[in-house]
């Protein structure tokens, strides 16, 4: 069953300038993105900085108001919900942020941070509330005595555990994980990835997992979507995508990862040039300025994301 269906999602940010700060242009951060996530599965969203992956993640929770498009959560288009109904729906949709230092209130104890989430959605009160907080601390691998400690007393990995406990507090169905391990040390990253996998199984969670590290995304995801400048350029089941990358950008991205094994020297696809500005996008394919396979059609017509047999790709040369 599809838990989440995103159709033609767009998010433009106005660029103000000139006399009277009129809107002179738009940053097309997300420009027509569609995907589905099945109940209990994980969709990985990868791409480099500025590709719109985090904006996509936040827009599907309506933390940003979408400019266009529909977001069906359990069949209901949440774009049409009013404030009250949206707030009730948010109980089912949570987010874990990248920076565990900035996303926890420094004036609240770990227990209270988790407790607030419980209060806002009226999940439990009194003794039951207390019991639930302690249980959540246990689930994410923290101890009872951590209840009364403040965020500055925790390490980065432990803070991220608090962030996870807060998200779990309201029994969500979907969690958007926005670069949840990028700010953590290498040896701690594995602990958090394992924890995310464990709780997914335990609570039947669905994830949209956003990251720039392809190895991490491959490890945790069922399906993977590769984004470039606000669009999905390729989307497939993860083994299919990593074994047979179709889009030239995906292939270049995969070949660029340094492999921690000096005996494996791999041939690297060199990408020339820089990413164009999302304000002044080229008329044709957005990747054309850096693409090794560019031909004249790429500069003129923007390719659609098309299914080429269990594998969606947006490239004129893969038809």
């Amino acid at each position: 069953m599809e838990l989440l269906e995103v159709k033609g999602l767009k998010k433009y940010f106005p660029v103000k300038g000139g006399f009277l700060s009129k809107t002179v242009n738009y940053v097309k951060a997300v420009d027509g993105v569609s995907f589905n996530v099945k109940q209990g599965k994980t969709l990985g969203l990868v791409g480099e900085s500025g590709c719109g992956k985090s904006t996509t993640g936040r827009t599907i929770l309506r933390l940003y108001e979408p400019t266009e498009g529909a977001i069906y959560f359990e069949g209901i288009d949440i774009v049409t919900l009013d404030k009250e109904k949206l707030r009730a729906k948010r109980k089912d949709m949570q987010i874990i942020f990248q920076d565990p230092y900035a996303s926890l209130n420094p004036r609240l104890t770990a227990g209270e941070i988790i407790g607030r989430a419980i209060d806002i959605h009226n999940i439990a009160r009194g003794k039951e509330r207390q019991r639930r907080i302690l249980q959540l601390l246990d689930v994410v691998g923290l101890k009872r005595e951590h209840y009364n400690r403040y965020p500055n007393e925790f390490s980065g990995g432990q803070r991220q555990r608090i962030g996870i406990a807060r998200a779990l507090a309201v029994n969500p169905k979907l969690i958007v994980c926005d670069e949840p391990i990028s700010a953590l040390d290498v040896s701690i990253q594995a602990q958090i990835i394992n924890l995310l996998k464990d709780i997914q199984e335990q609570f039947h969670l669905t994830y949209v997992f956003i990251a720039h590290n392809l190895a991490v995304v491959k490890h945790i995801s069922d399906d993977v979507a590769v984004m470039y400048l606000g669009k999905i350029v390729e989307m497939a089941e993860k083994d299919e995508l990593f074994l047979r990358p179709q889009h030239p950008y995906t292939a270049a991205l995969l070949s660029a990862i340094p492999i921690p094994d000096p005996s494996k020297k791999h041939s690297r696809i060199r990408l020339e040039g820089d990413v164009p500005s999302p304000i002044n996008l080229p008329p044709g394919c957005r990747f054309a300025t850096r693409c090794p396979e560019r031909t004249s059609i790429c500069d003129e017509v923007e390719p659609d994301l098309i299914d080429i047999g269990g594998h969606m790709v947006a490239c004129h040369h893969r038809r």
């Binding site: 390490s155 290498v186 040896s187 990253q189 594995a190 990835i193 190895a215 490890h219 995969l254 921690p260």
Partner: peptide
Amino acid sequence: RGLMDSIPKIDVNEDRLKSIEGTL
């Protein structure tokens, strides 16, 4: 060894990462 085991590898499928427990 722990550090090497704890990073997910792009060319290997593993179900669970071996992590180094605890903190610095």
